[in-house]
Design a protein around this nucleic acid. Structure first.
Length: 214
DNA sequence: AACGAGGTCAACCGCGCGTCG
DNA sequence: GCGACGCGCGGTTGACCTCGT
């Protein structure tokens, strides 16, 4: 009973909502001195007397998604979009797994990106053929680079070795080239498949889009 | 200029898993 | 083996922004 009361007091004491500059500073300073460690401990200790009135969870989220020095901000590039597209086709909504292959991008950012921009264009009609073509281009790139694709037979449904394609994906694959190849092939002009709007939307926010329609 | 609709994104919530005592 | 705790993940929410009318 008494502990419930205490918990209630602690709950009331906790801050929620957007982080202030001061809170960011407290958290950043604490982590730079002590490292990440246990988030709940961190939440209790950081800031001394003016301690962070945040849950460990909240601190972790703020640090990972926003304050971490290696977090990349700004638009998702065409190459990153292709990578997200391919990885999502393979793993579905495994955002943290996908994020591991996009240095500096967070799972939250990728998740938001997908939900707000990709999902609405990812209709069943036009994505599968594009994905198929992406896979073909990827496979030929890897073959050119001497990457052994035979091992991919042990792989998932699309012919990529999940181990090599995941851990070495970025090493072997020049996604910029792939984006260019697809652009040259006129993939944005998918209207023949009856999904003009979708593909236009898909490329519009990528770097390769507008001139295709000039 | 005012308003509403739609888009974006930071943050929260709940669940499940791993670890520890 | 079991319960408590901490953490990570995916889903969802809501505030803010932008754009069209």
């Amino acid at each position: 009973m008494e502990t419930e009361k205490q918990n209630a007091i602690v709950e009331v004491d906790l801050r929620r909502g957007p982080w202030t500059v001061e809170e960011d500073l407290i958290l950043t300073n604490y982590i730079s001195k002590h490292g990440e460690g246990r988030w709940n401990t961190l939440a209790k200790c950081a800031g001394g007397i003016k301690r962070l009135k945040r849950t460990g969870k909240s601190c972790r989220l703020r640090w990972l998604n926003y304050l971490r020095p290696d977090v990349r901000r700004g638009n998702i590039t065409a190459e990153e979009q292709l990578l997200i597209l391919e990885l999502h086709s393979r793993w579905g909504n495994r955002w943290s797994k996908i994020a591991q292959h996009l240095p500096g991008r967070t799972d939250n950012e990728i998740k938001n990106f997908w939900r707000t921009r990709m999902q609405k264009h990812a209709n069943q009609q036009c994505m599968p053929p594009l994905l198929e073509r992406i896979r073909t281009v990827v496979d030929s790139s890897r073959a050119v680079m001497g990457v052994h694709t035979a091992s991919a037979s042990s792989s998932g449904r699309n012919g990529f070795s999940s181990s090599s394609a995941t851990s070495n994906y970025g090493d072997h694959l020049d996604l910029k080239d792939m984006a260019s190849t697809l652009e040259e092939e006129g993939w944005p002009e998918f209207p023949a498949h009856g999904c003009e709007g979708s593909m236009l939307g898909f490329w519009e926010f990528s770097a390769v889009g507008p001139n295709m329609y000039a």
